[in-house]
């Protein structure tokens, strides 16, 4: 479903992503792990069409992505962002946030779709007309997930979706993500530094260091704490 071939990204002289190739099958759940500055978010942004100057190939389904804003991208993948406080427009109600993608694409039956999606992400209907600041972090993240689901994309890009949340709320959101994937056969591409989250949510992972992919591993390797690269094991030892 997601296929990266020799993806390189440079800002001016400094290259931040160096020749990364990886493949995520349809319905798969892949995690890209690494520390800040490893280039993991940059790769995510390139897939999301927010970065224009990449080289190599990005293939989603059977569509080769163009540089920049590719209109085909909209129906193919949507993103859930890290910061539940920064990813929702502060002056728009949950209802407006969720119905906007429908209006953009002229899709009808907005009322039913909004209510259905609220139900799907486990957000009570009474929250529909609240503003983001009247919601808790976990509720906001549910709204962000609901927004990503509105256009029914097969691929979800997840940018540290739970790192800004409390542990107990993190569990709720992780459960939700797992359920949604099972119900809808979504393909997940997750960026994180949190190995336990990968263990819960993903099938495969790639370890990124300073823009280079040092290892592609299965989640079984993670669970048994047996990576083949030295850096992978270093990350394991620092995770507690």
């Amino acid at each position: 479903m997601i296929d990266l071939k020799h993806l390189s990204i440079a800002y001016g002289e400094t290259s931040v992503v160096k020749d990364v190739s990886l493949h995520v099958p349809e319905g798969g759940s892949f995690a890209l792990v690494g520390e800040s500055g490893s280039g993991k978010s940059t790769i995510l942004k390139a897939i999301a069409g927010q970065i224009t100057n990449w080289t190599g190939r990005i293939r989603l389904g059977d569509h080769d992505l163009q540089q920049g804003r590719d209109p085909a991208l909209i129906r193919l993948c949507q993103m859930v962002f890290q910061d539940p406080f920064g990813s929702l427009h502060p002056r728009k109600t949950v209802d407006t946030i969720l119905s906007e993608p429908l209006s953009i694409h002229g899709l009808g039956d907005q009322n039913r779709r909004v209510l259905e999606t609220l139900d799907a992400v486990g957000l009570a209907r009474k929250f529909r007309f609240r503003l983001p600041h009247q919601l808790s972090g976990g509720q906001r993240q549910r709204v962000a997930i609901a927004r990503a689901l509105m256009l029914d994309p097969p691929v979800m890009l997840l940018d540290e979706p739970t790192s800004a949340l409390d542990v107990s709320v993190q569990a709720e959101v992780l459960n939700l993500l797992k359920t949604l994937r099972e119900q809808r056969g979504l393909t997940y591409f997750l960026v994180t530094h949190d190995l336990p989250v990968v263990s819960f949510l993903c099938d495969n992972l790639g370890i990124l260091r300073q823009g280079e992919l040092v290892e592609l591993a299965t989640v079984e390797q993670l669970k048994q704490q047996r990576f083949s690269s030295e850096y992978g094991n270093e990350l394991l030892s620092k995770s507690y």
């Binding site: 999301a48 069409g49 927010q50 804003r69 209109p71 991208l73 909209i74 949507q78 993103m79 962002f81 890290q82 910061d83 920064g86 990813s87 929702l88 427009h89 502060p90 906007e100 993608p101 953009i104 694409h105 962000a144 927004r147 509105m150 256009l151």
Partner: peptide, 13 residues
């Protein structure tokens, strides 16, 4: 560059 602007751009606005 806020995420809510990126989000709406990604939805084709």
């Amino acid at each position: 560059n806020a995420e809510f602007i990126s989000a709406i751009q990604m939805q084709g606005a």
